[in-house]
């Protein structure tokens, strides 16, 4: 129905090509073309953060980015974080601190947290709250998410509270 365009980009460290509709979002491309469903659709208008990915090291809402704009860029999704030791610790912290309930916001939250810690390794609880402000969670009330991220931040206190 619509025009297609060929793009070439790096996805989770691997170069790949894709033929995408020009009106397709990066989110739909990741989910429907690349088959990576860890990136979630929550609102489609950049308000909830469930679709957060890293593009050239910046965290952004993939629903607001055109797939064609991924051309020539380095895209990392939740699936790609598996290769990152720091992210392993973060994912483990989310599990151990009870930061996951329904889990639908979790991949986006982990992506945003990993970006936050990469850019602000000393983030304290207040900075973490501001850092995940754009990621909505309806289940947890955020407290345990903040605790999880703080536990792997350099200033955080590892381990659960007493």
């Amino acid at each position: 129905m619509s025009l297609k365009h060929d793009i070439e980009f790096k996805l989770n460290g691997v170069s790949r090509c894709a033929s995408v509709r020009v009106d397709m979002s990066a989110l739909d491309m990741l989910r429907d073309v690349a088959g990576l469903t860890g990136t979630k659709y929550g609102c489609g208008e950049g308000e909830c953060g469930a679709c957060t990915i890293l593009v050239d090291g910046l965290s952004l809402n993939s629903c607001l980015m055109f797939a064609v704009d991924c051309h020539g860029r380095d895209v990392v999704t939740i699936e790609g974080l598996a290769a990152d030791a720091k992210a392993d610790a973060l994912r483990a912290a989310f599990v151990e601190h009870g930061a996951v309930q329904c889990g639908y916001c979790t991949p986006g939250m982990v992506m945003q947290a990993s970006h936050l810690l990469a850019t602000h390794p000393d983030a304290d609880a207040e900075a973490i709250k501001r850092g995940i402000e754009g990621n909505l969670c309806r289940c947890t009330g955020y407290t345990k998410i903040v605790e999880a991220i703080a536990s792997v931040s350099r200033t955080g206190k590892p381990g659960a509270r007493s």
């Binding site: 469903t37 860890g38 994912r91 989310f94 996951v100 979790t106 991949p107």
Partner: peptide
């Protein structure tokens, strides 16, 4: 179910 959810 948390490890699977946190890994997407």
């Amino acid at each position: 179910d948390a490890p699977e959810k946190a890994s997407g």
